[in-house]
Design a protein around this nucleic acid. Sequence first.
RNA 1: GCGCCCGUAGCUCAGUGGAUAGAGCAGGUGCCUUCUAAGCACUUGGUCGCAGGUUCGAUCCCUGCCGGGCGCACCA
Length: 553
Amino acid sequence: MTPEQLRDVVRTVVAAAVGRGALTVEVPDDVVIERPKNRAHGDYATNVALRLAKAAGRPPREIAGLLATDLAAQPGIASVDVAGPGFLNITLAQGALGQIAVRAVTAGATYGRTDVLAGQKLNLEFVSANPTGPVTLGSTRWAAVGDALARLLEASGADVSREYYVNDAGAQIERFGRSLQAVALGRPVPEDGYQGDYVETVAQQVVAEVPGLLEQPEEEQLAVFAERGVGAMVADIRSTLDGFGVHFDTFFSERTLHESGALEKAVATLREQGHVFETEGAVWLRTTDFGDDKDRVLVKADGEPTYFAADCAYYLDKRARGFDRVVILLGADHSGYVGRYKALVAAAGDDPATHLEIQIGQLVNLVRNGEQVRMSKRKGNFVLLTDLVDAVGNDAARYALARASVDQQIDIDADLWSRQTNDNPVFYVQYAHARISSVLRNAADLGLSLGEADGVDVTQLAHERESDLLRAIGEFPRVLTAAAELRAPHRVARYLEELAGTYHRFYDSCRVLPRGDEEATALTTARLWLCAATAQVLRNGLDVLGVTAPERM
RNA sequence: GCGCCCGUAGCUCAGUGGAUAGAGCAGGUGCCUUCUAAGCACUUGGUCGCAGGUUCGAUCCCUGCCGGGCGCACCA
């Protein structure tokens, strides 16, 4: 019996008690089934009696007592105890727990997936780093977390489109072009320009692409450097992210918004809604009507649209493309955007609470020799995605970045991460998978296989370590659902570490394969199913994080 | 000054109002003629920043304070 099935059973029992007048409460649609930390508290526990106490006007233990009797009579449940303030501690019948292994194996790659977000069309924007330089360590965090979140939402049934907003318009791009031009002409890079080895590389690439470029008038040169430079950077960013295993559905060009007249249209739309005003020669959006700190300029006094105007047009474009919800991952250095973004959504006539979601994540610091390395694109002194991957590999990099809560600033110790030691928990998890793979290979060599699902006797799985493992496997669907709802992919990583540990402890106490002259038994087959189920969950979980599940290590 | 995030074991960090607050690493003691010892068992280590409040119950919610990070442009 899975936790979900148990939840339904508990709800049915509550409803029955209400039906015959033993309780007068509304039957809750959601009943919390948890896995007690203390094994003495049964396989599962529910606090439903505590939750209902107030509404029923009766002491929780009394409610628990009457539910316990009914619950214990249900098939698949061995016993029910009332404990503490009114918890119901439930012990499942042996076979009921064992079915979890069969379910995980037969569901395969779909085990853990749900349809709780089915029908939702989401646009998930992340990374969106300026195309004026390579992908930095800071952006790498959002690449890892954003992609994991996308996979997580997909596992919950949502239709997710991964999007990267390319800021290929505006003064920053011109500055980038000027820097490339200066380098190509052998001049010093402007004060506010970009530095770093890549600037030279890109400049040379542009010069090589366009014969006679340096003989052209400087203004024409600049346009070429800006356009080709950005193109080269976008290509570089894209291939870097592809190599990292992060693939976007759309690279959305800001410039297309300028060129298509979408900005003017957006301003006009907002004006129709009655939230645009003009003063001091500029065009403003009255965002303060929607909770922003101050009103925001859409078109500057010099006639140039602001970045914010492009944001407005971009949001409207996403909505026009049919997305129910626009989700944006931003670094803490952009937290100031939230207020104006919510306001623009409201000003456009949408509801910020349903159509917009901005997730702010804290920054990543690099620590070297116990000292924080400051990162600045301008000075050309920064750590790149490729530096991290070169040092620790894709798997460790993705896992390490996805394993921490985005609310938490993380320090990456360069020395620690460049040492490839088992300090990195990803090895612990991957090792469990490799270990299981090895057991299953050895089983195959002995001519042993899982066989059909109806041929395995899961009541054989009665050892405490087997029960622990079955319960852990049974948690997986709920872990995915909760992680998706909370936008917290790191929960998946933490769960996998726990699952790996539970497997290692099982492995240590429970011999799977027959040794020497021993014959395979029904227990052997049941344990093979348990191993296969564990491996499946490890694969499914690692897949959400974009990390490989090696068969050998 | 205002806004957002954080403060949990020596270190890095989990912990969606529930039972005795956890993991990895680091320290200590054991376990390999047997399926991968990149493992396991035992052990050391906590005023959950401080003070109030709400609640049957608070690491979690509210308020204030202390400490750290990041923002507060007619920049992008």
